[in-house]
Simulated assay, not measured.
Amino acid sequence: MTNDGQRASVRSCQHWRREGGRHVGLCYAAAGGAIASLFGIAAPWLIGGICLTTFVALMRPFAGPPRLLIRASSVALGMSIGSRVGVSDLRLIATWPLSLAGMTVTVAAMFAGSYYALRRIFHWDLPTAFWASSPGALGIVLAMSSQAGADVTKVTIVQLLRVLAVMIALPSIVGPTKAATILPSSRLLGIGLLVFLFSLAGGLALRRLRWIKEPTAMLFSGIIVSCIVHTHFSLDGNWGDALIAPACIVISSNVGSRFSGMGWRDLVQLILPSTLSLFVATAIATAGSLALTLVSGLHWSQVLMAFAPGGLDALIAAAILLGMDSLYVATHQVLRLILLSVALPVAADFFERRVRAEKSARATSGVSLT
């Protein structure tokens, strides 16, 4: 075999190994969901998949699912939400401003509380404590923390353990209310698949608009297209749930793959600060949701799901599987992502100036002493 042929063979093997790793993660997520379903666990395709893929990733790393499947899972969630929206639901949106304002205050309080705990109790440096305290926007946090001089290992582990704990514990605590039926009839399944294709095309088109980012573009496309179909054709049934189980499998595989390559030693060393950060954020989210429930009369479990500092896709999927008002949860979770996406760069610039000022002051005092 020639050198060119050998190189082509190596590239082909690497490609199949990488793609095979992605498929292995999806298989583990499906297996975890099936096992959880047998034991009657709440939101089984989400919790079971996340638990098994996370354990496997720590033992034997694997790649996350392809980007197209991740986008498709967001579309599937939006499609399920839109298929449930009626005229009465749209009228209820007018009662949400107080809830959205309460969530904004809660997000700020979660950020401040976690930051204070990591700085005062564990004496973490300012950049690391700042980026580890963000209650969401994981992608932005991981991308910007390395540029800000933060300890990326600490930030990554604290963020991922918080997301993992919220995703696993919250559906179990809330409990199985009116669980969504996952398998629609063959006629409704065909309608759901057709709507999905239109929604996916619309989401890919929305991605080209700079002010709409993933997964919001995909989620909004699914909601809008399925809502139009649902209201215009007066379709009844669970046609919007056709792809919920596959979407949960993709989400679970994506979450678990983020733990690939992490060392057990780092996890053990950071378990205490991660637990404290999680406890502070969860306590504040619980208090905020209870306060809003007393004022607005909304169902507490629904408000808690909307305020929780977890993964956007996973919490929306859990709300669908547990039969909650998924439009309410999705609206609040998307707003939280938007707020953090806008506020984090501004706040990071402020803290960066503060760090530079502290270093300058220390340098000046050192020169004066000598």
Rank of each mutant, 00 (worst) to 15 (best):
S186I: 12
L204F: 15
M218D: 15
I228H: 01
V225G: 08
M262S: 05
I223N: 07
I271W: 08
S234W: 01
L278K: 06
S199I: 10
S260V: 02
G261V: 09
T216P: 04
V255T: 01
L193C: 11
N254D: 11
L197V: 15
P215A: 02
G261C: 06
L183Q: 12
E214C: 03
S226R: 03
R187V: 11
I244Y: 02
W264S: 08
G202I: 14
G263F: 05
S234M: 13
K213F: 15
A201N: 04
S226Y: 05
R207C: 08
G240Y: 03
Q269V: 09
F196Q: 00
I182W: 04
F220L: 15
D236L: 08
R207E: 12
G190I: 10
S186T: 12
A205V: 15
A180W: 04
S221V: 08
H232L: 15
S274F: 02
G192H: 07
G237P: 07
L272Q: 11
S185Q: 06
A242Q: 00
G192M: 09
C248R: 00
N238M: 10
V225H: 12
A247K: 02
L188D: 10
V225T: 14
F196D: 04
Q269I: 08
D236F: 03
G240L: 06
H232S: 14
L189K: 10
S185W: 01
E214V: 13
I251P: 07
N238G: 08
G240V: 06
L204A: 13
L267P: 06
F259R: 04
F259V: 03
N238L: 08
I228N: 06
P246H: 02
C248Y: 00
L219S: 09
A205L: 15
R258V: 12
G237H: 02
H232C: 12
W264R: 05
I224P: 04
H230W: 02
F233L: 14
L276G: 06
L219M: 11
A242S: 06
I244D: 01
R258M: 07
S226Q: 09
V229Y: 09
I249F: 01
L188N: 13
V255R: 02
F259S: 04
N254E: 09
R265A: 10
M218V: 05
S260F: 04
